[in-house]
């Protein structure tokens, strides 16, 4: 039963990550795109946890949810705010 729940959660997180990847790619407002990309990273972190990779979760949470959005927000602040 527990393996079924884990697989179900994994599939739901994977499907949600598709939605947020698509939104991050097509969104014109770059700040919103970064937020969508961060949500997609959170989904990936959940999938890594359920794929039994605790090391990857520990390295991916600070990198994918903490540092990536921070530096890309810095970049957006200094360059264009809107995609063409």
């Amino acid at each position: 039963m527990i393996d079924l729940i884990a697989a179900l959660l994994m599939a739901v997180a994977a499907v949600t990550s598709i939605v947020f990847t698509y939104l991050a790619v097509v969104e014109k407002n770059l700040i919103q795109a970064v937020v969508f990309s961060a949500v997609q990273s959170t989904m990936y972190a959940l999938i890594y946890f359920l794929l039994m990779a605790p090391d990857i979760v520990l390295v991916y949470l600070p990198v994918g949810v903490g540092i990536y959005p921070a530096i890309i927000l810095l970049l957006i602040k200094k360059t264009d705010k809107v995609d063409e």
Partner: peptide
Amino acid sequence: PTLVKKIIALTIFSDSLNSLAI
């Protein structure tokens, strides 16, 4: 067209490849 959007897409690309490996 925007380089910022290209960087965002590239991070998603590399993360997806890493996920496939795991």
